[in-house]
Amino acid sequence: MSAEYWPWWLGALAFGALVVAFPLLVGRRLGVSGAWERVLHWKTEREAERADAVLDDMSAFEAALAAETAAAFGAADNEAPGAVATVAAPATPSPEGAPAEVQRRMPLTTQLVLIVSIFAGGLIAALVSGRFEWHTDMGDAFRSIVTGGPLMWVVLFGGGVLVGIGTRMAGGCSSGHGLSGCSRGEPVSLVATAVFFGTAVAVSFLVWKVI
């Protein structure tokens, strides 16, 4: 069974390439829990997005107004003869290039697209590898290691709740902190990853050996 899965180096190359490609092409780091969080709070996020759009319009309007004012009357505190040119520069607010892409929120609809496309990618993988099969349980390993009875539903839901609360409390999950943040050498992500991985190791041993 395990032999059918990709060798480690192929997985490493694919994960690494995607984690780099995502922010370069999309302008935001790859993080799935953040996408969920926003899609789940669709209504409030939508309102926030509209408010941001209005604010953007207003600051663009103010910038244009400032540029026009400078063009018409000359810049007040500028002794250089090329006043218009120098004033025009700060009128276009470029926030030092760097943090904008990280801070900038993605359109809400792209977050929904991310979630649906991860499902689609999983479906395609299962189909092409011949691994697709309808299951009403979580497979043999889950049955033998955790539980096969009706307790399974409790474990899945309860574990899911812990994942939901934990990822939002920590501000990221295995993709956002683990892959994206760690590869950037961010201290907060290194700490989060060490802690969630360490806990998962301890709990997995417990589940495997004891329960």
């Binding site: 934990g166 990822t167 999950c173 989060a192 802690v195 969630f196 998962a200 589940v207």
Partner: peptide, 11 residues
């Protein structure tokens, strides 16, 4: 948060 997440993921 990471402790809760790790435990939830493992089970």
């Amino acid at each position: 948060g990471a402790v809760l997440f790790g435990a939830g993921w493992a089970v």
